[in-house]
């Protein structure tokens, strides 16, 4: 648990896309956490992989 397996880095300009896509098809079924790191906060969402 806690191993990061995919990462989208934000350009140095600080401008990020409003939609970002991860391909999780090759990973086993289970619960994953998507973690977005901002300058002043971290937000997370749980996602289930079937």
């Amino acid at each position: 648990m806690g191993q990061k397996f995919a990462q989208i880095d934000v350009p140095s300009s600080g401008l990020a896309s409003t939609i970002n896509t991860f391909d999780i098809s090759r990973y086993p079924a289970g619960m994953y956490v998507v973690r977005a790191v901002f300058d002043d906060r971290v937000v997370i969402k749980k996602v289930i992989k079937n």
Binding site: F5, A16, N20, R35, A36, V47, I48
Partner: peptide, 25 residues
């Protein structure tokens, strides 16, 4: 969510101050 292949991470409005997004098992 649940997903089988691609997942989309969306922000509204534009995610100012975003450093990165990670998917963690």
């Amino acid at each position: 969510n649940p997903a089988t292949s691609n997942i989309q991470v969306q922000f509204y409005p534009n995610p100012f101050g975003l450093r990165g997004i990670g998917c963690i098992i």
